[in-house]
Amino acid sequence: MSDKIVIIILGLLVLTYFLFVTLPIIGIFLKIEPSQINAQLHNSAIIDAIQLSLFTSGIATLIALVLTVPTAYFMTTRNFPGKSILDTLMDLPIVLPPAVAGIVLLYAFAPKGLLGPIFNKLGLIIPGSTIAVIIAETFVASPFLLRSAKIGFENMDKDVINSAKMLSGSRLRVFFTITLPLSIRAIISGTMMTWARAMGEFGATLMFAGNLPGITQTMPLAIYVLLYSNPFGGVMLAIILIIISFSILIIVKLLEQKRFGPKK
């Protein structure tokens, strides 16, 4: 086969893939009816869903940050038996189908679930509450941050860390002045991915938290429900979600370019 044919075939494959991903996105933007935008932006169901999504995904991302960065550091600096199994378990939520994530969370956190007795004592009923949304989002999205932070810690120059440890007595000081700054880009890009994933969480939220406007009805759930009662509202929300996700991905891309791009 001549090079020319190979190039043409590859070119067609690339073009097909570009169109495959971009056309559906372009398609929904063509559904915008400018006359309706104003009314939809004052629709309380839409406003509530946006506020709830921003709030819950923000909290979920903060929780993920606090929990996964130390875990990632622990996993990259320590060796122990069964480490690879534990490592794989930590990644599991990324590949779990949403329905499975929903049901495992129910059996863990519902009043009659594994941890139910504890929450019952505290007078807390998790399913049906905003807390459940945050739990579902954290469960599904945090592994992205864990993975990214691990890569950040793994790629650090170990000699720099070791020298710093010898020069300074405080491990905490080395972590905050050397380790963290060196891996901060990986952590930030992982944080953004986690945030975007949390914002898009649908299945586990629907099963575990339920669908109640203002309390558990996040943007993806509202899109699903609105599509049948107020199709244009659904389209509007979908577009807002696409714009937010796109912006987040752009930021991640910029960060990664600075990290892996050509050296100045």
């Binding site: 129910l106 519902a110 679930g113 139910g116 399913p127 339920g210 669908n211 109640l212 406007p213 429900v225």
Partner: peptide
């Protein structure tokens, strides 16, 4: 506590009996 999208889901949620 939740507005479900099908009749089956309501029966499912109540009969799952996890206290939801």
């Amino acid at each position: 506590v939740s507005y479900e999208d099908t009749d089956e889901n309501i029966v499912g949620d109540v009969s799952l009996n996890v206290g939801t």
